[in-house]
Computed example of a mutant assay.
Amino acid sequence: MTPFEALPIIDIRRLFSANPADRQAVAEELGRAAREVGFFYISGHGISAERIAALRAATTDLFAHDFDWKMACHIGLGRGHKGYVPEGSEFYGSGRPDLKEAWDVGFEAADDHPFVLAGQPLISGNKWPALPGFRDSVDAYYADVFALGRKLFQGFALALGQDEHAFDALVTCPPSKLRLIHYPVDPSARDAPGIGAHTDYECFTLLLADQPGLEVLNGEGHWIDAPPVTVDGEELFVINVGDMLEVMTAGQFVATTHRVRKVQHERYSFPLFFACDYATKIRPLPEFDPTGERAAEYPDISIGDHMWSMALQTYRYLREKVANGELALPANARGTHTFGQFKALAE
């Protein structure tokens, strides 16, 4: 990883081109940014300003409701680990609870879906509040940004030397979570993390935020601001490599450590964590680990079990269930700080 001072911007319009050479050219830019930084902005993504505005309006309306109203859809009620996450519910690197509230929405799965019937954690229908227009706005945004994630995954496949459709069949009903995150105004929280230092657990993340606060750790151990960027009226998405792409590349793509700080203004953030289906086993691709030596550094664990084990170690209500023996970590579960620069520091 390089001592970068700013995130690169990649125009992905040619990723939608009918010309294979155009798509390959964008893929090479994706691969370079993933190797050198692990974070980058994308322009030309095709998500309309109207779609984004509708999501913001619905989210603002949602979090304006009182605490008891929101707690009726608490994430711990029912199955699927979806719904409202009150402030102080999550713990990352600092050991202190995060200063935010959130609403988690996942890939919609009917009760009779095979993955639901198999009892896979994180797979279920969503909790939808009794709020006119909320589901329509959030569903529409989820569909658009998830489709963008599929296109980016094809670009990453090309960047990894694979056929661009190599990973398509691995994404049918994944635990891909969209988080609607609200950072309230709290002057006393200025020097505390909104979200502590961490890596993302999935393949990659597509983030849209309306205020500064995101910081990314560079190759020299310095925190670099990654504020919202608008170019020619288009809000750019921030894309970052997650743990599973790091595994695929045996560490050549790094799950870059990041955090949210300096929450001086009310802030809304919308990350979509793009994942493969729950049971998908992620291992280093042969091109990046021809001898198989690096495979021993990574757990033989499904992407879903990795995500579930991270949730069990992060969310207060799940940590309590693990502590009292109601739930247990999956076999081969790793600690929350064992990828990206955390992994390098441990070596």
Rank of each mutant, 00 (worst) to 15 (best):
P8F: 05
A18S: 14
D22M: 05
R23G: 11
L30Q: 03
S48W: 08
S48I: 11
R51P: 02
L62C: 06
D66W: 03
D66H: 13
W69N: 03
A72Q: 15
G76A: 15
Y84G: 10
P86M: 08
F91R: 06
F91C: 07
L99G: 09
A109Y: 00
A109L: 03
A110L: 13
A118W: 08
Q120C: 11
A130P: 05
D136K: 12
S137D: 11
A140Y: 06
A143D: 15
K151M: 11
K151P: 03
Q154N: 13
G155N: 09
F156H: 02
D163S: 15
A166R: 10
F167A: 12
L170V: 01
T172K: 07
A189N: 14
A189Y: 01
G194R: 04
G196E: 02
H198C: 05
T199M: 02
L206S: 12
L207E: 03
P212W: 02
P212C: 08
G213Q: 04
L214H: 03
G219S: 09
G219H: 05
G221N: 10
H222K: 14
D225G: 14
V229M: 07
D232W: 00
D232M: 04
L245M: 15
L245F: 15
V254I: 15
T256N: 13
R259M: 02
R294M: 12
A295H: 02
A295T: 12
M307R: 00
E320F: 09
V322H: 06
N324E: 11
L329F: 12
R334M: 14
H337K: 13
F342N: 08
E347D: 09
